[in-house]
Computed example of a mutant assay.
Amino acid sequence: MKYFLTFVLALFLVAASVEDARKANEAYENENYKEAITLYKKAIDANPENAKLYFNLANAQAKAGKTKEAIRTFEQYKSMTDTPKERAKANYNIGNVLSKMKKWDKAVDYYKKSLRYMSDDADAKHNFELAKKKKKEQDEKKKQQKKQNKKNQKNQDKNKKQQNKQNQQNKNNDQNNQQNQQQKNKQNQQNQEQQKKKQQRPQKVSKAEAEKILKALEQKEKDLLKKFRKKKTKSSKSKNEKDW
């Protein structure tokens, strides 16, 4: 892309301003844009009405990568001149600055403005068509990116929904497991209590068993009584015997 730089200076400049402008032009040609900017500003301080100095300063700023400053200075230059050709050059250069920034939509607008003043400018036409092409590609890329972002968001929402569903299911499972465990613990406790009560209660015996036990007790009692009588009889005999 082509940048214009006007080196023509007004003859009525004071000597100091002319010298600063000349040195600024030399610095620009030597690609020392930082020094050129300083010298152009110094020349402008000496002669602020010289529009050409603003144009040259804007070019130096653009070359130095100071894009925002360059655009402002080109706009200021445009406000200082009524010449269609000069306005066309400023708009063309602003278009170039914006193209470097890949702001193709704005670049297209400035190339279009330039062509309104100079419709036969081949460079402006070329850059205008190029900027339109780049803008179309950029718009298509943004469209595809937007579509992809929408798809990604949809997938994220779907995954999030599934994750929430899984989390809820896990939560329900945990609650069910907890309830089951509590129920199990409660049942175990009840079983233990029932077993304890069962052990503490006298065991019930059947009628036959009761009669059997009773007969055994009666027999035992008879045996004991018989044994006692036998022992008593023996004792009586022992007392009746004489002691010789």
Rank of each mutant, 00 (worst) to 15 (best):
K136Y: 08
Q138K: 13
T233V: 05
F74G: 01
I213N: 07
N32D: 05
Q163R: 12
Y110G: 00
T233L: 06
T233E: 09
Q179E: 14
K100R: 10
K42I: 02
F4H: 08
A216D: 10
K2G: 07
A60Y: 06
Q219A: 11
A208R: 05
F4A: 05
Q194G: 05
S236W: 09
K102P: 01
D120F: 11
K197W: 02
K154T: 08
V14P: 02
A90P: 07
V8R: 12
Q179Y: 11
R87G: 04
A62K: 05
K102S: 04
D20I: 00
D82K: 09
Q162N: 09
T73V: 00
K136N: 12
K220W: 07
K42G: 07
Q144E: 15
F12W: 15
N30V: 04
A107Q: 02
E218Q: 15
A90I: 08
L5G: 00
F55M: 04
A122K: 04
A58V: 01
K160E: 15
K135W: 14
E19G: 06
E218N: 14
K113E: 11
S99I: 00
E209K: 11
Q61G: 08
P202V: 06
K133F: 12
D121M: 06
S235R: 14
A210L: 15
D20C: 04
A131F: 02
N56V: 03
Y33D: 01
Q166D: 10
K23V: 03
Q200E: 14
N176I: 12
I94G: 02
T233C: 02
Q138Y: 14
H126W: 09
E211L: 15
M101T: 10
N188P: 04
S119V: 07
T73R: 00
M118C: 08
A43H: 03
K142V: 08
A64G: 01
M1K: 06
A216E: 10
K150T: 05
N152Y: 12
K143W: 12
F128Q: 11
K68C: 00
E193N: 09
K215D: 03
N56K: 07
Q144N: 13
K165M: 13
A60E: 09
N176Y: 14
K125P: 03
E140K: 15
N50V: 09
K2L: 13
T6L: 13
E26V: 12
K171R: 07
Q148M: 13
K232V: 15
E26C: 02
R22W: 08
L39E: 00
Q153T: 05
K198P: 02
W244Y: 04
K161M: 08
